[in-house]
């Protein structure tokens, strides 16, 4: 499953995270927040600075554009 960057993901659409962050610094933090391969999420909102707010496991997490580029997702059919 190739998926697309989370930066290109449509808003308010159920997604499956298929690729983890390439950013070593953020990897541990993202995992602890539940943003790991296989997690179900949706993108809620575009933010100032080119980021997004994503919903995962009931949490709202703001992610910067660099993180979004490193995460790949697929739409859940």
């Amino acid at each position: 499953m190739a998926g697309f960057s989370l930066a290109q993901a449509p808003l308010h659409t159920p997604l499956l995270l298929v690729g983890g962050s390439q950013c070593v610094v953020a990897e541990c933090r993202l995992s602890a927040l539940g943003l790991r391969r296989g997690a179900r999420l949706s993108v809620l909102q575009k933010t100032a600075g080119g980021g997004r707010v994503v919903v995962v496991g009931g949490s709202r997490i703001a992610l910067g554009p660099q993180v979004l580029e490193g995460l790949t997702a697929d739409v859940i059919a």
Binding site: L30, L33, G51, V53, I61, A62, L63
Partner: peptide, 12 residues
């Protein structure tokens, strides 16, 4: 200097 990207938990 490398800046870590934004990852912040938003409380309700």
């Amino acid at each position: 200097e490398v800046v870590e990207p934004l990852v912040i938990d938003l409380p309700a």
